[in-house]
Design a protein around this nucleic acid. Structure first.
Lengths: 203, 203
DNA sequence: TTCGGAACTGCAACGTGTTTCTATTATGAC
DNA sequence: GTCATAATAGAAACACGTTGCAGTTCCGAA
C-alpha cells in the first residue's frame, strides 16, 4: 500500500522547495483564517502561494491533506513556543485544564481557522492516516506532559494509563471544539464541558 | 436566522409525501451501505428513490442533512427495538459497556454505512444543528438509561452529572468510530479504547 | 558546459454537490 | 368542477475538488 503522503519539510531537497511548501501552508492558514473551510479553495491557495495548481497537488495530494498538514505545523509552532516552561498547576487535573484552556482560547481566537482545521481533521479518511498520526502524537505529548508535570522528562515514554487518559481527553476536546465551531455550543459551554471531562477522567 | 431544516415526518401533510421521504431515506441507506459516503450521490439517491433531484433538495437541503437524518432514523429504529427490555448488568459501567458493545458491533457490521453516517455527522456545520441535536439527544438518552439501569423511569430527567458523563462517553465513542472507519484503528482497538474510557469515567 | 530527467506552469476537462428555471401535476378552497 | 397555489419533474448550468497533459524551467551528473 503506497499511500501518497504530503511532502514533509524533510522530503524536500532544495531551499526553493521548502519555501514553496512554506508559502503553500501560509496561504492555507491565511485563507482559512479569513473564511474557514470553504474559503480554502485549491485554486485560491495555489494563486496566493504563487504556485501552479498541479504543484500544489504534488505537495499535498488533497485539500484534507493540506489542511491537516497545516494543523500539524500550527500545533508544532505553538508547542515549541510553550514547551520550554513547565506546566503550572499542582495536580494533573489542574495542569491539563491549564493547558487545554490555553489551547482552547487560542483556537477560539480564530474561529474560521479552527473551523477549517478541525473539520478537515474529522473528515480525514484512511489516506490521511500519516498526517493524522502526527497530530495525534503532538496532542498526546502535550497532554501526557501536562499530566506528569514536574515528573516529566524529555523523551521518556508515558505509561499506557497516561496515554489512555490523554486519548480520552483529546477525543472530548476535539468533539467540544467541533460543537463550538458549528455553533452547537457557546465558548463557555465548551470550556465547561472540557473541564468536566478532565475532572471525571483524572481522579 | 431561519436556517433551512430537513423536512421531518411530522412536517409532511400527505401520505404521498411521507412515502417520498421514506423512499429517499431508504435509498440513502442502501447506497451508503453499498459504497459508503462517496457512494451516496445526490443524483443516485434521487433516481433510486424515484424522485427528482430538486425534490430531494426540497426534503433535505444538503447531502449532510440527508445523511444525518438517515442516521437519526436508523438510531430511532434500533432504539425502539431494544428499549423495551432493561439493560443487563450490575453496575453503570457494565451496563454502558454492554450497550456500547452492542451498538459498536452493529456499526461494525456495516462498515460502509457507518462510514457514511459518522463522516456526515462529524462534518456537519451549523446549518445542520437541528438534525445533529436530535441524534445527540438519542445518544444521551441511550446512555443515561444504561447508567441508571433499574432505577431508570420513562420520561424522568437524568441528573446533570449523568448527562455530563453521557456526553463524554458519546464523544469518545464517536471519535473511536471515526478512527475505526478511517482505518486508523482496528475493531479490537476501538472496542478497547471505548471500554477504557467508560471505566475511567464511571468510577 | 551540456544533457537528461524531474519539477513546475498554465490550462482544459471531468465528477459531483448545489442552484435555477420552466413545464407539468397534485391539492385544497370555494 | 374550477381555480389558485404549492409540489414535483426534468434538465441545464454553476462551483470547486481533482486529474491530465503539453510545454517550459530547474538541477545534478558527466
Amino acid at each position: 500500500m503506497t499511500t501518497t503522503n504530503s511532502l514533509t519539510a524533510e522530503d524536500l531537497g532544495s531551499a526553493a522547495q521548502r519555501d514553496r511548501r512554506r508559502r503553500i501552508l501560509d496561504a492555507t492558514i491565511a485563507l482559512a483564517s479569513k473564511g474557514g473551510f470553504d474559503a480554502v479553495q485549491m485554486r485560491a491557495v495555489a494563486e496566493q502561494a504563487d504556485v501552479a495548481l498541479g504543484t500544489l497537488y504534488r505537495y499535498f495530494p488533497s485539500k484534507i491533506h493540506l489542511l491537516v498538514s497545516a494543523l500539524a505545523r500550527q500545533f508544532e509552532d505553538t508547542q515549541s513556543m510553550v514547551s520550554r516552561k513547565p506546566v503550572p498547576g499542582d495536580t494533573p487535573s489542574e495542569r491539563v485544564i491549564y493547558v487545554l484552556r490555553r489551547a482552547t482560547r487560542g483556537m477560539q481566537g480564530d474561529a474560521n481557522l479552527t473551523d477549517a482545521l478541525t473539520r478537515a481533521f474529522m473528515f480525514a479518511d484512511a489516506s490521511v492516516a500519516t498526517e493524522i498520526h502526527v497530530v495525534g502524537m503532538q496532542m498526546t505529548a502535550m497532554l501526557t506532559r501536562a499530566i506528569k508535570g514536574e515528573a516529566y522528562v524529555e523523551g521518556e515514554q508515558p505509561s499506557d494509563e497516561d496515554v489512555a487518559i490523554a486519548r480520552v481527553i483529546s477525543d472530548v476536546w476535539l468533539s467540544a471544539l467541533v460543537s463550538w465551531v458549528t455553533g452547537r455550543a457557546t465558548a463557555e459551554e465548551t470550556a465547561e464541558h472540557i473541564e468536566t471531562a478532565v475532572r471525571l477522567v483524572l481522579r
